[in-house]
């Protein structure tokens, strides 16, 4: 089967940056920076970007480019015994692609609501009860919200049309439109926010350095965790995207551009979000607003701030949710492509057929997130998939490649086609620094979850929805790797 390729380097870069810049840049990074020492955290963050984020990006770009396949095919080509690792990453992407579609769907609905500020004065009540019809626990699904369901359908329809058109005409064209749109809307929101009264209060929260945090282990773990989650590494995406690169591609430079551009977007959104936080604090006479991260930041705190804006609040609201939609869609298509390409590789079926079947399947499962229990389920699944799934696959990936594969093969491959060269420091970062950090993150996550059940949910709900999901995808990855490739020859010839 002929493999599609990126039309230009610019197209690949936009797609890779589009995949990295997601909802985490908007609603996770600003709060983590604020929580962990402001300006000091940013320095730790850049250190983490250079010592873990970009080295892993170089690793994954080299893997995809050298072995020319989706994650399972790439790992199977390295060693048949490693194929399950690729499927583990793909199954994580599968789960994320499903719940991510629900969040984008909420943003689409809120984009429409913003024209007449339909969320009213009590934005939390509107979001939880009027919009989501939330139930009392994750194990009670409640009623189906038709407007949410309709928005989810739109997300899958968009995903279908983009992926169905292939790499060049679908993903590349979509990113060439969505990424500039995302950049422009973010810049407009940032400048509007900076000129709001009291914005400086928020910027002081965000940037004032707290030097005591430099010795705080949790600030370092959060910085590395943020870099790791944000760059879309360890869940099959970057391996898949780089497999579509033409033979002559500057891998190392591409990795640096992707890493730094992701940081640029994170900083722009942090400035915008915290200027808005400052504005709200100023209006409330010095009281800092609650809910400064996650879905509540986007769907309750920001709408509340938009209500208070002095000039054209509807326009700013529409622009904000357009930003969330663009950031979400560019990530969603990359996550879905990681799954679709793996199935295409394994079964040797036409792209159009696999994309159609997967999008129908994705939509059907997403219905779960249009119920009253959807937000709880999303919260639990997201916590376990991110904190255990991605961290574990990342850890196994760097450990397996470092200890059972010669990293110099990848280093030489990257150096041969790149302008900027990497040396043995890269080997040390991949072989020692990254596994140690991931192990620290994993240990800390386990410790936190054992000490206090996540989010105050019942142990039963966490076991059924969280631990079981994490365990199930791990077992399934082994089972899927046992299915035969349509042609065994596909595993040969590229070592």
């Amino acid at each position: 089967m002929k493999t599609d390729e990126w039309k230009s380097r610019y197209g690949f870069l936009l797609a890779a940056i589009g995949s990295s810049v997601g909802l985490g840049n908007i609603w996770r990074f600003p709060y983590i920076a604020y929580e962990n020492g402001g300006g000091v955290f940013l320095i730790i963050y850049f250190f983490a970007l250079l010592t873990a984020g970009i080295p892993i990006l170089i690793l994954e770009f080299s893997l995809g480019h050298k072995f020319k396949g989706s994650a399972p095919l790439t790992f199977a080509r390295i060693n048949k015994k490693l194929e399950w690792l690729g499927w583990w990453q793909v199954l994580i992407s599968l789960i994320i692609s499903i719940y991510y579609s629900a969040v984008i769907a909420w943003a689409i609905a809120y984009f429409v609501f913003s024209f007449d500020l339909q969320w009213g004065v009590n934005t939390i009540d509107f979001f939880l009860h009027d919009f989501l019809g939330i139930t009392e626990s994750p194990l009670t699904l409640g009623s189906l919200r038709i407007n949410v369901l309709f928005s989810i359908f739109i997300v899958w329809l968009i995903t279908y049309f983009i992926l169905n058109s292939g790499i060049k005409k679908g993903i590349e064209v979509a990113n060439k439109f969505l990424m500039p749109l995302l950049f422009v809307t973010m810049i407009i929101i940032m400048f509007r926010s900076i000129f709001l009264p009291g914005s400086y209060i928020g910027l002081n929260f965000l940037f004032t350095p707290d030097f005591s945090k430099i010795l705080d282990v949790s600030a370092w773990v959060d910085a590395y965790g943020q870099v790791f989650f944000s760059l879309s590494v360890a869940f099959a995406i970057m391996i898949t995207y780089s497999s579509y690169l033409p033979k002559k591609s500057d891998i190392i430079n591409n990795a640096f551009i992707t890493g730094f551009m992701d940081a640029c977007f994170a900083l722009i959104s942090a400035i915008a979000i915290f200027s808005i936080v400052g504005f709200m604090t100023y209006n409330a006479g010095g009281e800092v607003p609650k809910n400064l991260q996650g879905v509540f930041l986007a769907f309750a705190t920001i709408p509340k701030a938009i209500n208070q804006m002095p000039f054209m609040p509807s326009l700013i609201g529409a622009l904000f949710f357009l930003t969330v939609i663009s950031a979400g869609i560019t990530s969603e298509i990359s996550i879905t492509e990681a799954v679709v390409s793996s199935i295409i590789n394994k079964l040797h079926r036409p792209r159009k057929e696999i994309v159609l079947i997967y999008c129908i399947f994705g939509f059907i499962v997403s219905i779960l997130f249009a119920t009253g229990g959807g937000l709880f389920i999303l919260d639990i699944v997201d916590h376990f998939v991110n904190n255990y799934g991605i961290v574990c696959t990342g850890l196994v990936e760097v450990a397996a490649l470092s200890w059972f594969f010669d990293l110099n093969i990848l280093k030489d491959h990257a150096n041969n086609i790149s302008d900027f060269k990497i040396n043995n420091i890269w080997n040390i970062l991949i072989k020692f620094v990254t596994p140690i950090i991931l192990l620290c993150i994993l240990t800390l996550n386990i410790y936190k979850d054992i000490r206090i059940p996540y989010g105050g949910y019942s142990v039963k709900a966490l076991t059924y929805l969280g631990w079981s999901t994490a365990l199930l995808i791990f077992i399934l990855s082994f089972l899927i790797s046992k299915i035969k490739w349509y042609d065994k020859e596909i595993l040969k010839g590229l070592k």
Binding site: G38, N204, F207, T208, I257, C264, A266, D419
Partner: peptide, 30 residues
């Protein structure tokens, strides 16, 4: 905005945008 916050903001923006622009220019020159 206090001075230390302003300095940290400028440093962060210079590192992020400086890094991105440096590598983009490097790619364009090739």
């Amino acid at each position: 905005m206090n001075t230390s916050a302003l300095i940290m903001m400028i440093i962060s923006l210079v590192i992020a945008f400086g890094g991105a622009i440096y590598f983009i220019l490097k790619a364009l020159r090739k």
